[in-house]
Design a protein around this nucleic acid. Structure first.
Lengths: 249, 249
DNA sequence: TAATCAATTGCAGTATTTTGCAATATATTT
DNA sequence: AAATATATTGCAAAATACTGCAATTGATTA
């Protein structure tokens, strides 16, 4: 039996029952538990399911955890968000992406700055509700349970009909050579649409992500106008990005 | 049984009853109290619920936005929401309105029921993220800061392009003669669009609102197919509504 | 086709996690 | 304060996970 067959069978089982036990699968497919474990490990790495002790559960099943309160590397992200607010102008029209860094930006928007702000992200939209001078426009669509953002054709189409001054986006991976990449195809499509809808694109990215890459490409580094990390702009870690036509903050 | 299953079951119980006892859970799930205690401890650490002496209590809904606090007449609204879930069918396509009663419905959607659910409400969308079997579609638009829902031309237009089996709506005021009315013109327009997009419309309404009216009219009572209050269907307070062609639950 | 290399798989030994139990401590109620 | 209920702690058994390794398979190259 081919590995792919097996993995499909596992995914099928997970989709059907929201959960599986390694031992059950092993018996059904007549392979060792170790093999199933390794399969599940791979599928987890590919974000197709979530591996747990004793088995696996579907991504939606666990989505409670998406409501996480603890933000990883909060301090760095706050620093990035603070720098980003420096780009904002009174009366501007911006887009804020999903992700914890962008959420931090939403949180730190100056309370007296008047803005029109588009977003796909439920948490960002929520955060923006607390800003009396920000007109919030949510771009609707199917909601991704993991990312808590609108995705799909509808969201893409809505994006195609707007043009913002600045978009602030995050990325899963960034590399000076390979550009911005993600492990999720849908997300890549969406980000492309966001970039297209922006006069200028600002990448918010903690330095930890620098020089990493994944499967699907969002855009080249040059498609970004400004890159903001928590580092000082002259930090050596940013050297590789200096050749490109981007501003580093 | 996987730990994740158990924890989800616990969260479900907590969501349903707002408070549970460890011993009850232990019996229901057929595990030791110690195990339940440990699960609850973890869930508490993850901010999914709050552990108290002898059991656990629900956090309310949106934990990261401190706005939720106390919902007025929660008990009545929970009762209404529970009745409403009885109308749901596997694979159905529904719309859930904003407002605390509808939010309560979203919260109480059975965890294993597969649904497609449209909404305009950010809190409802958030709540639905916790339901693995619910496909959530947010109807985008300008976000109203007070109501926390999408409004405006865009939202209206999106509504005009869908048709759902059931819509569950709230209302500011309801009267057997004057029908459903609101304080806010924009909201009225939106609700009209919702009703138009529904094969059947279900009104969720605490009895306190019966026989009240305001400035702008959403629709006649007859436009509603089913009205759900926290009262018994044969309660005298509902007499005035019996002449009309609506079902009372 | 034969030879070679990389990937896959099962196994054994060891480490880690989970779970229930018992003893003790703390909290709640009467 | 006594009685009861709930928490905490440490522990041991069982289940599960991880690691390295060898046998096998499958694909690639010569």
């Amino acid at each position: 039996m081919l590995k792919e067959e097996r993995q499909l069978a596992i995914l099928n089982e997970v989709a059907l029952h929201n959960r599986v036990q390694l031992t059950d699968i092993a018996e059904i497919l007549d392979v060792s538990v170790d093999t199933v474990r390794r399969d599940v490990k791979e599928l987890d790495a590919d974000n197709k399911l979530r591996k747990v002790h004793g088995g696996a559960v579907s991504l939606g099943f666990i989505s409670h955890s998406a409501r996480n309160v603890n933000i990883y590397a909060l301090e760095e992200k706050t620093k990035i968000a603070e720098k980003a607010t420096g780009l904002l102008k009174e009366g501007g029209v911006i887009f804020i992406d999903g992700g914890t860094t962008c959420l931090e930006l939403a949180r730190l928007l100056p309370i007296n700055l008047q803005l029109t702000c588009f977003t796909l992200s439920l948490p960002v939209a929520f955060e923006l509700l607390t800003k009396p001078n920000v007109e919030v426009i949510f771009i609707g669509g199917n909601i991704s349970k993991e990312a808590q953002i609108a995705i799909g054709a509808n969201a893409m189409h809505q994006l195609s009909e707007i043009k913002v001054d600045y978009s602030f986006i995050g990325t899963g991976y960034v590399d000076s050579l390979y550009g911005l990449t993600e492990f999720d195809w849908d997300i890549v499509q969406l980000k492309k649409a966001v970039i297209k809808a922006s006069k200028k694109t600002v990448l918010l990215c903690i330095s930890e992500k620098l020089n990493s890459q994944h499967r699907y490409k969002t855009c080249d580094i040059n498609a970004i106008n400004t890159m903001i990390t928590e580092l000082e702009p002259d930090n050596n870690l940013l050297n590789l990005f200096r050749n490109h036509d981007i501003r580093i903050l």
